[in-house]
Amino acid sequence: MIPTPLVDAAFFVFAAGAIVTGYRVFRTDSMVRAAFYLLASFSAVGGILVLLGSEFLGMVLLLMMAGEMLIMAIVMVMYMMNPAGLNPMTMVHQNRVAAVAGLAAFLALAAVGLLGDFPDRPAPQPALATEELGIELLGDSMLVFQTAGVTLLSTMIGAVAIAGRRGRSGSAEDGSIEPALQPDEEDAA
C-alpha cells in the first residue's frame, strides 16, 4: 500500500493542477491552448479519482476526455475564427457578473463542503471497486445503465439529424464561408 503522506502530496499536486489549469482555460488567448488546459484539468481530476480508489472512473475519464479534446480542436478549425489559435484574442462578455457568479458558486459550495456533516463511512476495499462496479452495472443498476445507453443512442441519432449533410438547417455545402468578425456585420449587409 502507498503511504498516506505520499497520497496527500499527490492529492495536493493534482488538486492545485486541476484548479490552476482550469482557471487558465479562460485566461489564455488561444482556443487550442484552452482545450489543452482543459484536458490537463481533467487529467488531474482523473488522478484524484484514482487516488480515491475509483481506478475505473479515473481511467475512463482520461479516455473520454482525450477523444473529446481532439473533436473540440477539429470543431474549432471548422467554424471558429482564428482556428489554429496562436494569435491573441479575447472574447468575453459580462465579465464582472460572471466573475461574481463564479465566486458565489464557489463560496456556497465550499461552505456546504465545510459545514455539511457527512457520515464517515469509507469504502472498505478500494481494490474491489472495479469488480463491484461491474456487478452493479449489470445487476441492480441494469436499468439505469441501459437507460444511459439508450440516451446515448438517441443523442447520436439527434446529433446526426441536426448536423447531417441534409439536416433540418439546410445544405452542408453552404457552410464554408468564415464568420464575420463583428456580430452585426451580416445584419447590416
Binding site: F36, L39, M59, L62, L63, A66, L70
Partner: peptide
Amino acid sequence: AAIAFVMI
C-alpha cells in the same frame, strides 16, 4: 486511455 492520449 494511453492510446487515446497519443492523439493529443
